[in-house]
Design a binder for these strands. Structure first.
Length: 487
DNA sequence: AAAAAAC
């Protein structure tokens, strides 16, 4: 298990929302939502957003980033009406972009909640569903538009919305939005917006490359971070079990049973794998729903809703569910596959342990995952111990059959065995890297973000993505594979 | 080794 001790970074008593210079309409909505005090990211970011500054905000998963940008933006929109435009025309004044449809939907729900006592209208547009109702909403006029990139471009090109009056832009899960897969769409969208605007970037993970790239989209920004970047919530118990592929399903079932886990998300790396895994759990009698990009949008929303309502126990999902989704009191997350990007590990396990609740995150590790685990270890700056797992019951079918041929046995209650992917746990390392103290930075001007880095303009485009060569830790006690062998 | 986001 990972040492989750965190230094107390924000010892000051939590400030209340009603100490902020907010319109009574917004304070009432906040109170309606049941919120009294601010989380650290909210306490730090809201005053700065109110000042009109560009912000890059980094805070742990599940600490209220959505409210941290939407509440102060609504306040600014109430206070600074655009005098050149009649309010009756409802031009889009604030644009929020999110990387998945479900997340856009969730953000929109929150914005609506905070704006409900104001005259400000909002709507959400994303792909996979009929454009017409969205078009009608847009033509009726909205001040706040929440969107995924592809569908927004469709609406822009169809002239269903005009974005030349946008004063505020938010990139939720900003590091993903600036990722190579989204960047072209993002740049096209930004090209339709006025240059003079306030831009906010929020995420739980920001790599140094992305931080640098992000600066080219911000003006004189302030970095707000409330914990060491890329940090996982200290309330989440993280475990890594070394297993074989054949044992993975059984291990999950066993943990669910042994720990009496009510509900969990199981993450897989591929759509096909997730679909198969979901069917397998279904056959085992678990109430299961699948969520991935090959499902219709209708099915996706139904799966998520059923899970949130507690009608299904297991949500088997790709990384479409990794980021941002707020599922109340989710007790556990399983990584059936180790994620390809270490950042996604942080986001996946961030679905549990939200808002200070406790949670369990189990990652199943096979011998082939050595490098990926080393990447995670490096990102979260914590020593990872891969533990052996004691499996109850029979071996997976093909193995037990083979064993029977060799030595026929009178099978009674099968003895527990250890799932052994033929590696040994990591030896404790003396690497001081993992115990580096965290230096809190409340207001850091961009130049200081990258100490010692060249002060030349931030690189635009692909050069920002060239990562340094990854180092393979001798995680399983073995040597890194020779190139000839790995082919 | 993949996923996501438009039709």
């Amino acid at each position: 298990m990972i040492d989750t001790h965190e230094p107390a970074l924000d010892a000051a008593p939590a400030a209340r929302f009603d100490t902020l210079p907010l319109d009574p309409k917004l304070l009432r909505a906040v109170a309606d939502s049941g919120y009294l005090t601010m989380t650290p990211i909210q306490a730090k970011a809201i005053p700065i957003v109110l000042e009109g500054r560009d912000v890059m905000g980094a805070a742990q998963t599940g600490t209220g980033k959505t409210a941290a940008f939407s509440i102060p933006l609504l306040q600014r929109m109430l206070k600074h009406e655009n005098p050149s435009v009649s309010p009756a025309r409802h031009p889009v004044r604030a644009l929020v972009l999110a990387p998945t449809r479900e997340l856009a939907d969730q953000v929109a729900e929150n914005v609506k909640k905070y704006a409900k006592h104001t005259h400000l209208r909002s709507t959400v547009v994303f792909g996979g569903i009929d454009m017409k109702p969205q078009t009608l909403q847009l033509k009726a006029g909205v001040e706040v538009l929440i969107a995924t990139p592809g569908r927004l471009l469709d609406h822009i090109e169809a002239k269903n919305c005009v974005l030349n009056q946008v004063e505020y832009v938010v990139l939720d899960e900003a590091d993903r939005m600036l990722d190579i897969g989204f960047l072209p769409d993002l740049q096209r969208i930004l090209s339709y917006l006025p240059k003079a605007r306030q831009t906010l970037l929020f995420s739980a993970t920001f790599s140094p490359e992305i931080k640098r790239l992000a600066q080219s989209y911000l003006q004189d920004p302030i970095l707000v971070e409330t914990a060491r970047p890329n940090q996982t919530a200290s309330t989440v118990e993280q475990r890594f079990y070394g297993v074989t592929d054949d044992d993975k399903r059984g291990v999950i079932r066993q943990i669910l049973r042994d720990r009496s886990i009510r509900q969990a998300i199981v993450f897989g790396n591929s759509k096909l794998g997730v679909a198969r895994l979901a069917r397998s759990f279904e056959r085992d009698g678990l109430r299961t729903a699948a969520l991935h990009g090959d499902k219709s949008q209708d099915e996706r929303l139904k799966s998520l809703d059923a899970f949130k309502r507690g009608e299904v126990d297991l949500l088997v999902a790709t990384d479409v569910a990794a980021r941002g989704l707020d599922i109340a009191d989710l007790p556990a997350v399983f990584n059936f596959d180790v994620p390809f990007n270490a950042e996604d590990y942080v986001h996946r396990i961030g679905r549990t342990g939200r808002a200070g609740a406790s949670g369990l995150a189990v990652t199943l590790v096979t011998r082939a995952d050595t490098r990926l685990v080393a990447d995670i270890e490096k990102l979260i700056k914590r020593k990872i111990e891969v533990e052996p797992f004691e499996v109850e019951g029979e071996r997976p079918r093909f193995e037990s059959r083979r064993r029977r041929e060799e030595a026929p046995v009178e099978e009674e209650a099968p003895a527990p065995r250890v799932s052994r992917p033929s590696f040994r746990p990591v030896a404790p390392s003396a690497d001081p890297f993992f115990d580096k103290p965290y230096e809190s930075s409340e207001r850091v001007e961009p130049a200081a973000w990258e100490k010692g880095k060249p002060t030349s303009p931030a690189p635009k485009g692909l050069s920002a993505y060239i990562k340094p060569k990854r180092q393979v830790a001798a995680l399983f006690g073995g040597k890194p594979k020779a190139p000839a062998e790995s082919a």
